[in-house]
Amino acid sequence: MALTLDQRSASRRESRRPAGPRPVRGGQSPLARRQRRIFGPFLAIPLALYLVLFIGPTLYSIYAAFTNWDGINTPTWRGTDNFTALFDDPLFIESFWNTLLILVVVGIGIFVLAFSFMLLLRDMKGKGFVRGVIFLPHIVSPIVLAIFWGFLLRHDGLLNALIVKFGGEPVAWIGPDSAFLMIMIAMVWISTGFYVAILMAGVDRIPGYFYEDASLAGASAWQKLRHITLPLSWDVIGVAAVLWTISSVKVFEFIYAFGASQGQMPPAYEWNAAVFVYGVTFGGATPQYRFGYACASALVMLLLVTGMVALLRRAMRRDAVQF
């Protein structure tokens, strides 16, 4: 199997560069042999670090999800008890639900905004400037953005100051019913610029003459979008969707900094799965150190991500358009 792969790639290389003598026999060229010699030494350190500090912990976490591990004592096996407990735990249900809201609702919000911005920016004056400015939230700490968001929305904050100035009544933006919505809006604000940059990097590769041809043929703007832009940026959209799925589950810092006060965890209605892991282990004034339980919740989220990514890849699969 490995040999056939080698041969195939070697012959592909051959066909790409036909000029010059090439003593390649099934991937056994002198060059390939030299590369083989450095393979081990060059990979040893990163592979060791990765195995010990990344893959090892991942595997242990999967094991610990079935135990009552507290971080100190030897874990004892609990079977699937952690998982049944999770789905009886209103706090986890809330966190799980909120994670899905961020994944789906915020995801759709970002996509709609980023795709429209991308279309508008294609022929707008100052597109480089716009692209640069809306990318800004992506390069600073979410803690900072959470502080700003708090200042914007608190009772004596920026928004209410404006409302009062124009004779209105201050609005309670950060209440039990509205706080999570505000977090979701912030997520859209923070991430849109990044996805605009990704979409534009893909769409910029579409040659201009496609559109010119279409115009000559009398295609409407809508037809161009439908038959040129969308099919040719389909792959990028798919990658962006996978990227958002993975990163939406990791959202933690913003929520924690936005909602936590006086060493307490944020109120339950603001929790997502990442906050849950912290909340049942180290978080709060009296940490619970329920490591096994937290690992179980993290495993549920990993399965959710894996399932979503598999689903997305299936749904987005099209015949690749080469251009």
Binding site: F54, T58, C295
Partner: peptide
């Protein structure tokens, strides 16, 4: 190696904590 891009940090932090401890 690419697999690591898809694993949320929450999965690894707790075992990592005890390794470091």
């Amino acid at each position: 190696f690419a697999l690591g891009l898809g694993i949320p940090l929450q999965i690894i932090v707790l075992p990592l904590y005890s390794v470091l401890a």
